[in-house]
Design a protein around this nucleic acid. Sequence first.
DNA 1: CTGCTACTAACACGACTGTATCAGTAGACT
DNA 2: AGTCTACTGATACAGTCGTGTTAGTAGCAG
Lengths: 193, 193
Amino acid sequence: MTGTSSRRRDELVEAAYAYVLEQGFAGVSLRPVAKAIGSSTGVLRFLFGSRDGLIRAVLDRARQDELSVLDVLDTDTGGLAVVALRVWDWLRRPEHRPALVLWTESYAAALHDPGGPWGDFAQTTVTDWLDILGAAQPRSVRDTAPGRAQRTAVLAVLRGAFLDLIATGDANRVDRAVREYIKTLPRFEHPIR
Amino acid sequence: MTGTSSRRRDELVEAAYAYVLEQGFAGVSLRPVAKAIGSSTGVLRFLFGSRDGLIRAVLDRARQDELSVLDVLDTDTGGLAVVALRVWDWLRRPEHRPALVLWTESYAAALHDPGGPWGDFAQTTVTDWLDILGAAQPRSVRDTAPGRAQRTAVLAVLRGAFLDLIATGDANRVDRAVREYIKTLPRFEHPIR
DNA sequence: CTGCTACTAACACGACTGTATCAGTAGACT
DNA sequence: AGTCTACTGATACAGTCGTGTTAGTAGCAG
């Protein structure tokens, strides 16, 4: 009954997500969360089963937010370079900063505690994005080692760049770095549908 | 008296560092740490002042470990491409994985809690490494916007790549991505001493 | 009305947290 | 012998943690 969705549960996940975006996962304990979102530990435990259940629910909500980039992506046109640029334009927006900080925290937590509520978040988020980028590569290279290496590099630049950006805030320098890297990619390739 | 170094303090920092490399910073609480390293909460508080003091000491130790790459670096020869490759050869070694996981955790923690014991770790580690990479660039480009963008991209690739590596363990794919990226850098430039 | 579902409120339990206090010891220096 | 420094050990306090329990309500279906 704890994984089931319900009206109230959805509301509380949304509120808890907003709370965690501000406070981070680290400091999440039931009582403060409950107080902040207008609930109680009893209710949270009823709806989510446990603290880990709540964290899993919020993490799912965060993942869903992360994958909202896909709405603006359209991997069928423009090839890897254009898609990479669209992703970057999403990543660099200041309003996404809290989500990226939270992403970083989740990634780190998953790395040294794979048994925790984060599960295989780190591994999954890498392969998910590699798949997304792969969809923008021409069919001829997509399943080759060079093709995998290329999208791996693109992902690495994007990840490294936003890490830099959220730490230093130096948008000009980082933005320039990403754009000049993307320029080196083959442009106007499009995958065959 | 808490920041002062002493024989016993140094031993305990070393032991605590080893412990944190395994357990991560998140789960660090005084009693378990003390027990694991053969000490007690009273002693830890005497030598480090507080839990935050202990964390700062361990983080300092970790930073010192991270900067041990400099011993193998020699930014005076080979230019940015060669230096980047040397850094990558350090990052990709399996025995450095725990340190990189810890680095990621510290970075994330510093991002959403700049007032905590991590201080400005995230910002500092970026600028430190940009400086290191900058030292490998020719003097002619080092202080230009394109030069800064270039070392920013290099750092981004390295960071993104090891994030990928420690999550997926797919050494072949990631290694190939990094090497092929580095190939696109101007080679055999050396900075004027 | 009954009964069911979804949800809420209040309180208690044992474990664990960082911090505090204070008496005590081993070793070196004078 | 005296004193100082560095360190140890034990115990205590107040607070927070996740979890458990139990009783209760509002709304709707029959």
